[in-house]
Amino acid sequence: MQQLKGKRAIVSGGGSGIGKAIAAQLTEDGVQTAIADLHLTDNLPQGSICLTCDVSDAAAIDNLFEAVQQQLGTPDILVCSAGLGVHEKLTEGDPAKWQQVINTNLMGTLRLIRAFVPGMQEAGTGDVVIVSSVAAGQAYAYGGVYAATKTALQVVAETLRQEVLPGIRVTVVAPGVTDTAFFENTLSGSQTVESIGYGALTPEEVADAVLYALRQPPGVSINNITLRPTAQVF
């Protein structure tokens, strides 16, 4: 397995949930880690660089890039974990909310890739991790817009993988129901882990999967990982 100590990483959405758990495990492994999030708390991993950023804002991504270059340098690992949910009918929902979800989940990831991956290419090595969802490719009532953004990310990830061969590895991690504040922060809808009824993963379990992929030898690429509570139907 590859040692990660001494590498540099940036984690979007690293202020809470899955992103925070990934940032914590990276830090424990000796990775210099920058956390980018719209909301930062006081209990983030010790030693991490904390940067406020709204990934849906193009200018904010530009500012994030400059701050990371100054405080960290070119990252070896880019984790795109920032995400936003919406749960409403396509015939009744609010297009402004849909646009916000698209700007965060899809455009935010694309902008992060555009900002940070060219530096990895110049270095000749790096890892990109995109946190997707089992909702990718899965139509379900009230979930059309969210699922569409995650489906699009699957295509983006595979396109990126082909474009950055052979030096950059691309991994998509698609969790099922996970016990985070995600459902509390959805723009509309009243789902909870309890109301879904499948049980839930912990953020740390998802982070374990990410670290498993990152620790593989440089010649081994884990491109897709799906994990879910055993009782989850889809």
Score class of each variant (00 low, 15 high):
residue 2 Q to T: 14
residue 3 Q to R: 14
residue 4 L to R: 07
residue 4 L to F: 12
residue 7 K to F: 03
residue 7 K to G: 00
residue 8 R to C: 10
residue 12 S to L: 11
residue 13 G to M: 13
residue 13 G to Q: 13
residue 13 G to A: 07
residue 15 G to F: 09
residue 16 S to D: 11
residue 21 A to W: 00
residue 22 I to P: 03
residue 26 L to H: 14
residue 29 D to W: 04
residue 29 D to E: 15
residue 32 Q to T: 15
residue 35 I to H: 01
residue 36 A to L: 14
residue 39 H to Q: 15
residue 39 H to W: 07
residue 40 L to K: 09
residue 49 I to R: 11
residue 54 D to N: 14
residue 56 S to V: 07
residue 69 Q to E: 13
residue 72 L to N: 02
residue 73 G to R: 01
residue 77 I to Q: 04
residue 77 I to V: 13
residue 87 H to Q: 07
residue 87 H to R: 09
residue 88 E to Q: 14
residue 88 E to D: 14
residue 89 K to M: 02
residue 92 E to W: 06
residue 96 A to N: 15
residue 98 W to R: 12
residue 100 Q to L: 12
residue 100 Q to C: 10
residue 104 T to Q: 02
residue 107 M to Y: 08
residue 110 L to M: 14
residue 112 L to P: 02
residue 112 L to V: 05
residue 114 R to V: 06
residue 121 Q to T: 12
residue 126 G to W: 03
residue 126 G to P: 04
residue 127 D to W: 03
residue 132 S to D: 07
residue 133 S to Q: 08
residue 135 A to Y: 05
residue 137 G to R: 02
residue 138 Q to S: 08
residue 141 A to S: 06
residue 146 Y to M: 09
residue 152 A to F: 06
residue 153 L to Q: 06
residue 153 L to K: 07
residue 155 V to S: 13
residue 158 E to N: 11
residue 159 T to M: 05
residue 160 L to Q: 01
residue 160 L to A: 11
residue 162 Q to K: 15
residue 162 Q to W: 12
residue 166 P to Q: 09
residue 167 G to Y: 06
residue 172 V to L: 08
residue 173 V to M: 03
residue 174 A to L: 02
residue 188 S to G: 10
residue 192 T to A: 03
residue 198 Y to Q: 01
residue 199 G to L: 04
residue 205 E to L: 14
residue 209 A to Y: 08
residue 210 V to E: 00
residue 210 V to L: 02
residue 216 Q to W: 01
residue 217 P to T: 07
residue 220 V to R: 05
residue 223 N to Q: 11
residue 223 N to Y: 12
residue 224 N to Q: 10
residue 224 N to S: 08
residue 230 T to F: 13
residue 233 V to W: 07
